[in-house]
């Protein structure tokens, strides 16, 4: 009897405490941290011990430029994704299920289509001689083809497209968990819709925005197939640069150094985001 309840307690209790994270820590520790640290160590040992890789990295205007550009692109993509995703998630959270599942279906369908194939499809759609430009010109809306590809516009379209589901789905979860009564109460107390949105709905959906935004931003930092195909060379992202360095030039020291710096900067941003969002988050129970 006692043994039984103990065991049950153990099963139920495990995920509650810190122990729940144990399998994840083992997995990530053994198969991520160990190999990656072993590789990143090469940034100070390859080709010879020292910091010359970091000196080369920061001494090169190229890497600094690519770094800044990477964060710029990730920020633009994240901002646009949030702005586009929020109304959709809002609608999805309250829509009648029949329409809702149709939109969900479209989202899942788009995600299911191979990423490379989708990116190539965008390439053909966005070209100067592509479908979009020719349609617009055929309709007489524009005279000259719009530069939609090989620039920041192309990267943003292609990446927002990929990132939208990663923003919409967590946001729907957050919005659905909000008690509509809270907003009704606000209306009863005389809040205008705008006030209710700004003071209640937006703050309450912040955990979802933060979670989705973090995922989108961080994913964008490491992307390269889409920017490589839809952006110009002046939009080169760090991941592409690193891939070139380690795969074509076989300079694992320099590539590791760049990866390490990216990791540190991202972690710092993550810590910053925790502070900002953590401070604003409403007290638990609300």
């Amino acid at each position: 009897m006692q043994g039984n309840s103990l065991r049950r307690g153990a099963i139920a209790g495990l995920p509650a405490g810190s122990g729940g994270a144990l399998p994840a820590v083992v997995l990530v520790g053994l198969f991520f941290v160990v190999p990656v640290v072993a590789l990143l160590l090469r940034s100070v040992t390859d080709p010879e011990p020292g910091l010359q890789n970091y000196a080369a990295l920061f001494g090169s205007g190229t890497y600094v430029r690519v770094f800044l550009n990477t964060f710029l692109v990730a920020a633009v993509v994240t901002a646009v994704t949030i702005v586009v995703a929020f109304p959709v998630a809002w609608m999805l959270a309250i829509m009648p299920p029949a329409f809702g599942s149709l939109v969900f279906g479209i989202i899942i369908l788009s995600m299911w289509t191979n990423l490379l194939t989708r990116t190539y499809a965008w390439m053909v759609l966005l070209q100067r001689t592509g479908v979009i430009n020719r349609t617009l010109m055929g309709l007489g809306i524009i005279q000259e083809p719009l530069p939609l590809i090989n620039n920041l516009t192309g990267v943003t379209i292609g990446m927002v497209y990929i990132m939208l589901p990663f923003m919409i789905l967590p946001l729907v979860g957050t919005l659905r968990a909000i008690d509509p009564m809270t907003l009704r109460a606000a209306a009863l107390c005389g809040a205008t819709p705008f006030q209710a949105f700004r003071r209640i709905l937006l703050p309450l959906s912040l955990p979802g925005i933060a979670a989705g935004g973090l995922m989108v931003f961080v994913m964008s930092l490491g992307y390269f197939v889409t920017p490589a195909l839809l952006g110009g060379t002046s939009n080169m992202m760090l991941a592409e640069m690193i891939a070139q360095t380690v795969q074509s030039l076989l300079n694992w020291g320099l590539g590791s150094a760049a990866a390490f710096v990216l990791l540190v900067v991202t972690m710092a941003l993550y810590a910053l985001q925790l502070r900002l969002v953590g401070a604003k988050r409403p007290a638990g129970g609300l």
Partner: peptide, 15 residues
């Protein structure tokens, strides 16, 4: 001269 050219190449491309 692979590495040397590559450094110049990407510096020029990303500018």
């Amino acid at each position: 001269h692979r590495d040397e050219i590559a450094t110049r190449w990407y510096a020029w491309q990303t500018k």
